[in-house]
Amino acid sequence: MGTGNADADAVLRILVVEDEALIALELECLLDDLGHVTVGVAGNATEAIAMGRSTAPDVALVDIHLVDGPTGIEVARALSADRRTTVVFMTANAKRIPADFAGAIGVIAKPYSERVVASTLDYVADRRAGRDGPACPDGFWPAPV
């Protein structure tokens, strides 16, 4: 993939909220390749919110449509309430995202490419480390400021 950063502060602890097992598994492999750590995979809202509480991840990648319906929105709202967690939507359902993005910083539209996931995570890592004005990567749509 190439863009995976090896810097210690660039290693992100990531919660994957995705009900499609294959997508979740592949995403996990990709995150591993990029040098990040997957702290959990959740397929429904209750599970996702509980895992968010117990692991306090750096980043949550949240699909909108989960096993229990379009509950990704409330998951994003709950997880982003913890300032330690940066929420990014990953969805084929971008039309459902509310105007305030439910606390998420942006969206990666499905079907996504691995390159976009990689560059978005680099961007998130830069932002969290407070590095100056990292350029928003192509293929990632930021929430309106």
């Binding site: 499609e20 294959l22 598994l25």
Partner: peptide, 14 residues
């Protein structure tokens, strides 16, 4: 359709 394309793509990459 989008979700299925994602699944197909994930399947291939896996």
């Amino acid at each position: 359709v989008k979700n299925n394309l994602q699944v197909i793509s994930s399947l291939m990459l896996l």
